[in-house]
């Protein structure tokens, strides 16, 4: 927890030392901003203030407005899922480096919805020649605080373990009532209903196979989708399929396999994510693993790069 809090603590400490600034910066809070959104945006503003030397606290100026505008761009991108022209995205990506936002909402942009609709309509024939493919995972955005070298908090496994113990029981009962684990189940349906019965939601991220780096070079497959399942940021499984629903079914099946052991454990493990090694929170069974992990498709942990996350 302590590490997660660090960014916020620094901000409040800094504001504690500069009370005049605290009041001033507070005046930029939007009426509809939640505490979480505001504290993140406030950090963005304070961190980047030095880059706008003409800003004079207490006075409205156009350079202040530019900073505020960029802070809104950043917040809109992170919290609302908006995308801006490339030049703007590059800029805020830079400026937003190192700001920790836990539990970023998952959004689907209009382009992604439209592209998906088209793909369904034209599946079968020249599926990929005409469609802008969905972006590789909703968290991958040029500006969304994607992070290559950071990790989740060390306490995360302990935090999530009780939930997965509950889920373990739910899955076990569900499988009993479905006649045992086997190939002919609707795995996704089972997993989803179990997760939901534990009052959580299952998050699916889809990425076209060809957009994933780190694949064995010898693969011949280029088409198809890969799905990654997570539940409250904890990785559960990955699967490949011809289309999204097949990929999701396969991923669910993989996830359910984890529940076939004597217990499930949440652990921090090292794996690949977009070309680099990262630490991820993963759900594992009690079997010794022979192979490495598949690369991650999404990465919900954003960490402070300056102070160095876990890398």
């Amino acid at each position: 927890m302590a590490e997660e809090r660090r960014g916020e603590d620094i901000v409040s400490e800094y504001l504690g030392q500069n009370p005049h600034l605290a009041q001033w910066v507070e005046s930029f809070r939007g009426y509809c901003e939640t505490n979480k959104q505001w504290s993140a945006r406030r950090e963005f503003i304070l961190r980047n203030m030095e880059a706008f030397p003409t800003i004079d606290p207490g006075v409205h100026s156009s350079s202040l407005d530019r900073l505020l505008s960029l802070s809104m761009v950043w917040a809109n991108n992170v919290f609302l899922g908006c995308r801006y022209p490339q030049a703007v995205m590059v800029k805020i990506k830079d400026m937003g480096e190192g700001i920790v936002v836990e539990d970023v909402p998952v959004r689907t942009t209009r382009d992604e919805i439209v592209a998906k609709g088209k793909r369904n309509a034209s599946s079968g024939n020249d599926g990929d020649s005409c469609v802008k493919k969905a972006k590789a995972g909703p968290n991958e955005g040029d500006g969304r605080p994607a992070c290559q070298k950071q990790g989740p908090s060390p306490q995360a496994p302990a935090k999530h373990q009780p939930f997965f113990n509950r889920l373990y029981k739910a899955v076990a009962w569900k499988l009993v009532s479905a006649g045992g684990f086997g190939p002919n189940l609707d795995h996704h349906e089972i997993l989803q209903s179990c997760v939901e019965s534990c009052k959580q939601s299952l998050n699916c991220v889809f990425v076209p196979l060809k957009d994933i780096p780190d694949l064995p070079a010898s693969r011949v497959q280029k088409e198809g989708q890969v799905c990654e399942l997570r539940c409250s940021t904890v990785y559960m499984g990955t699967g490949y399929g011809r289309d999204e629903s097949a990929a999701r079914a396969m991923a669910s099946k993989e996830a359910l396999k984890t529940f076939q052991g004597h217990k499930v454990t949440v652990k921090i493990c090292r794996r690949r994510y977009r070309g680099t090694d990262v630490e991820d929170v993963m759900l594992l069974d009690d079997q010794p693993r022979s192979q490495g992990f598949p690369p991650a498709l999404s990465y919900p942990f954003l960490a402070d790069s300056g102070e160095g996350g876990a890398s």
């Binding site: 809104m72 809109n76 908006c82 689907t108 942009t109 209009r110 919805i113």
Partner: peptide, 28 residues
């Protein structure tokens, strides 16, 4: 200084509906 008003693309929450035009556009 008002670039944040003009996203290129924006999220749509289908909010239980089926088509993009029925959903809620999450515009700033």
């Amino acid at each position: 200084s008002i670039i944040d008003f003009y996203p290129d693309d924006f999220a749509i929450d289908l909010n239980g509906k089926k088509y993009a035009w029925q959903g809620v556009a999450l515009l700033p």
